[in-house]
Simulated scan of single mutants.
Amino acid sequence: MSNGPKTDISSNRQKDPDDWISGDEPMTGAQRSYLKTLSEQAHKPHAFAEGISKAEASKRIEELKQALDLD
């Protein structure tokens, strides 16, 4: 059963954070919260930092998710 033309999620690749138009803007509140939580869970407090960009926060979140085997 199909829910429409985009049923293959793996073909919908995420754009590289370095290519984001708004990547230089400060991280969002949601990113801040998630990054802080993941850095604590991974015992890597250095991964969290105030004042980083959206793009950098996204990269750090992905690294921590991989380290925690959440992907």
Results as ranks from 00 to 15, higher is better:
residue 2 S to H: 15
residue 1 M to H: 13
residue 11 S to E: 14
residue 28 T to L: 03
residue 3 N to D: 15
residue 70 L to R: 10
residue 11 S to K: 14
residue 53 S to K: 03
residue 26 P to C: 07
residue 19 D to E: 14
residue 49 A to I: 01
residue 24 D to N: 13
residue 11 S to G: 12
residue 23 G to K: 01
residue 64 L to N: 01
residue 66 Q to A: 07
residue 8 D to S: 12
residue 61 I to Q: 02
residue 14 Q to I: 10
residue 69 D to L: 08
residue 36 K to I: 00
residue 23 G to T: 02
residue 10 S to K: 14
residue 23 G to Y: 02
residue 17 P to T: 09
residue 64 L to I: 06
residue 59 K to N: 03
residue 11 S to W: 09
residue 24 D to W: 15
residue 56 E to Y: 00
residue 7 T to N: 13
residue 13 R to L: 12
residue 41 Q to R: 14
residue 66 Q to S: 12
residue 15 K to R: 12
residue 23 G to S: 02
residue 69 D to S: 09
residue 5 P to I: 14
residue 55 A to Q: 02
residue 50 E to I: 04
residue 37 T to F: 08
residue 60 R to G: 08
residue 45 P to I: 03
residue 41 Q to V: 01
residue 6 K to E: 13
residue 31 Q to Y: 01
residue 29 G to H: 03
residue 49 A to E: 06
residue 13 R to Q: 14
residue 69 D to Q: 09
residue 19 D to W: 04
residue 7 T to D: 14
residue 64 L to F: 04
residue 55 A to Y: 04
residue 48 F to H: 00
residue 21 I to F: 15
residue 66 Q to D: 05
residue 54 K to Y: 03
residue 7 T to C: 10
residue 22 S to M: 09
residue 14 Q to D: 08
residue 28 T to M: 04
residue 48 F to M: 02
residue 36 K to Q: 12
residue 51 G to E: 08
residue 40 E to T: 10
residue 41 Q to L: 14
residue 59 K to P: 03
residue 71 D to I: 11
residue 25 E to A: 12
residue 14 Q to N: 08
residue 43 H to C: 11
residue 60 R to E: 02
residue 13 R to W: 10
residue 59 K to L: 06
residue 12 N to K: 13
residue 24 D to Y: 08
residue 28 T to N: 03
residue 50 E to T: 10
residue 42 A to Y: 04
residue 46 H to G: 06
residue 14 Q to M: 11
residue 58 S to D: 09
residue 58 S to K: 06
residue 31 Q to L: 02
residue 12 N to D: 11
residue 3 N to L: 15
residue 49 A to C: 06
residue 54 K to R: 13
residue 8 D to Q: 11
